[in-house]
Design a protein around this nucleic acid. Structure first.
Lengths: 231, 231
DNA sequence: CTAACATTCTAGTAAGTTTTAGAATGTTAT
DNA sequence: ATAACATTCTAAAACTTACTAGAATGTTAG
């Protein structure tokens, strides 16, 4: 009656314990996305399947650290892995994860003034494509009025890209610049608003006398709007 | 040239530093939603404005702890506060925050088997309203075929509720059960899928010989589907 | 077998989080 | 002035995280 009373049942959860358990589960996802490096890895995986080495190089961290972050993401069921020969390839566990990354980033952009400021600095450098909406862009790309180029590494282009886009990785842009017609506006895109590749590409194109603008969307943003991706 | 060279510029950020800064900002939101108690507070605030004391009581934590969690949410710009007399009332900083809570919880439900299992235990107790879709429910509620009751505390009902819903807080349900017509199906809802109030209400109604089902939606879920809330 | 890819274990440092508690402070209503 | 509401500061304990490094382990291709 005194010490042993407690709650009189042991194998039955109190409603408080049930609730705590539920919120704790959701917090697992929150914890998984509470580290900047894990978010960067997640965004890279939105570009398509990659092995640990590619992820580590692109995120500029050690393989061991990448591996441990990836195992956290995997424990939260946000990513899955697959072995192919010597390599282990990671990919998003579901398309909802890409959607969630876009939602999370959008919320952060809406709510955090620091982030808005940082992004407007980036945009100031290379004119962003604010005015043109996606349907309009699609129409102009289809008709050939504008040239859409995907400046990510070619493997990411191969894993999925915007309709009518051509692959010209930013690393090859200078030597391949002759491929781009001088009389048309070039729309360059990369991994999304946080990626700097499209900005670089626009600078290079401007220096070469092209009319070029940046599209902030990447494939994840494009898909999040319900638009289709080409393979 | 040796030690001072480093990167030759001090007031100019490297592209790595820029990126790190961007992801770090987004991680601020992730950190804010990485604690179970903060998530519970966020869900409570989805029900409407509340002061610290109400939040602390409902989340079953001390006022001081509630206060410190709330200041974390405020630092992440997810909530705002307002003083009214002796009380400080917190509320969501924007409707996008409620939408984000629903998105985050949905992702967790989709990805985490543990959470699915915990929820199916809850649902097993009180038959959930899986079959009826929202438009259908709305029609039946409008025509009076079903009776929709909001079993949250009355102040939460007053802050916003589903169309055609009547307020009968679960604490008063037993003594007010005569108010409910015996010949109609009762649909009870509360704060959302993680809230146990509607389940309790359904049990009480069943014991009293009523036909009753639970609607898992709360106002946040209802709004997240683009449906309107009544005030 | 060897080399390449990746993970795991151990271990350590550094830093941050969650929670509780006591005391002090500030604001507002009565 | 006093009481109620809420925050802030301090401190401490328990815990978790991020990162680095070295060594060992496991898997697969050739």
């Amino acid at each position: 009656m005194t010490k042993l009373a407690k709650k009189s049942v042991i194998h039955h959860q109190s409603s408080r314990q049930i609730k705590d358990g539920l919120y704790e589960q959701v917090a697992r996802i929150g914890k998984a996305v509470s580290s900047p490096k894990r978010l960067e890895l997640l965004e890279l995986l939105c570009q398509g399947e990659m092995n640990v080495d590619q992820l580590a190089v692109k995120a500029e961290i050690s393989i061991k650290l990448a591996s441990s972050h990836l195992s956290v993401l995997k424990a939260a069921s946000l990513v899955v892995s697959r072995r192919d020969g010597k390599n282990i390839f990671y990919s998003l566990a579901a398309s909802e994860v890409a959607q969630f990354w876009v939602d999370l980033r959008s919320l952060a952009e809406e709510r955090l003034l620091d982030l808005q400021a940082a992004l407007s600095n980036l945009v100031a450098g290379s004119g962003s494509l604010a005015t043109m909406d996606r349907a309009e862009l699609l129409r102009e790309a289809a008709s050939g009025e504008v040239v859409v180029i995907d400046v990510r590494p070619e493997t990411e282009y191969a894993a999925g890209h915007l309709p009518f886009a051509r692959s010209i990785p930013v690393a090859e842009l200078k030597k391949r610049i002759a491929e781009i017609p001088k009389d048309k506006t070039v729309v360059a895109y990369c991994r999304g608003p946080f990626c700097l590749l499209a900005g670089e590409a626009v600078s290079i194109l401007h220096q070469a006398g092209h009319k070029a603008v940046r599209l902030e969307d990447g494939v994840a943003e494009w898909q999040a709007r319900g638009l289709t991706i080409q393979h």
